[in-house]
Amino acid sequence: MNLLVISAILAAMVGMRFLKPSMLAWIAIWWLGMFAILEFGFAVPIPASVIKIYMGIITLSLIAYVLTDPERVEQVWNPIVAFTVEKRFQPLLVVVGLLIPCVVAWSIYADMTKSKQAPSFARTVHPAPPDQITVHDTDYPLGFADNPYRTLEASAPEEFAARVQAGRDVYYSNCLWCHGDVMAGEGMFAHALNPIPTSFEDPGTIAMLREAFLFWRIAKGAPGMPDEGGPWESAMPAWENFLSEEEMWNVILFLYDFTDYKPRAVELH
């Protein structure tokens, strides 16, 4: 959220209450304000096609608002008629009349000569896991599986700490290159990859996932993802080729330990 833009537009809306501009100006300000919020109000840009849809809805709503009351129709219609008819507006009418075709022509030019953008694939970041996976001949029902060593945290803290340490060794001799030293997804190979490596510090990743989900993503890697995850372009290895199950569970303990996040619990039905 870009608070600066949004508060500026809110201020303009409040200002209108006091200034009581004409109906035409009121509509224009509403339309532009909504557009500015959609275009600049959010940190993550909204796709142009979505903005078009929203602006279409807003335009229709404004028209409907005007049409529901003959007085409002008058207030909008009269200035338009005056602008096209009255002599004192004539110079401005000529300018506007020439400007609009120029803008249309320019937008066609910009559209036809814009540099090409490589097509992109909107992947699902956390695709749905299968019901069950098999790793090194062991079956894991992902809905129920949990980290077998998680309970040690309470029952045997020393053994738990040793497992975190072992997981740390696994991390720094395997995961470091992409996910980075501080789990922020900024490893030395990250710049060349797309999708970029996951940042475990991001509250939208391991903090909201269950350990079994991580186990699936680690063990099966990119090749184990369904198509919506874009398995053909993710560089995540299938770690079952390199690591034992124990090592994978240990490294999961380490990820939560380093980031201070707690895994989401298994939901009991």
């Binding site: 290159w177 030395m188 190979f189 710049h191 060349a192 890697g221 290895p237 080729n241």
Partner: peptide
């Protein structure tokens, strides 16, 4: 950019 093959 190129990086090392460390996936397989």
């Amino acid at each position: 950019p190129l990086v090392g093959q460390i996936i397989e």
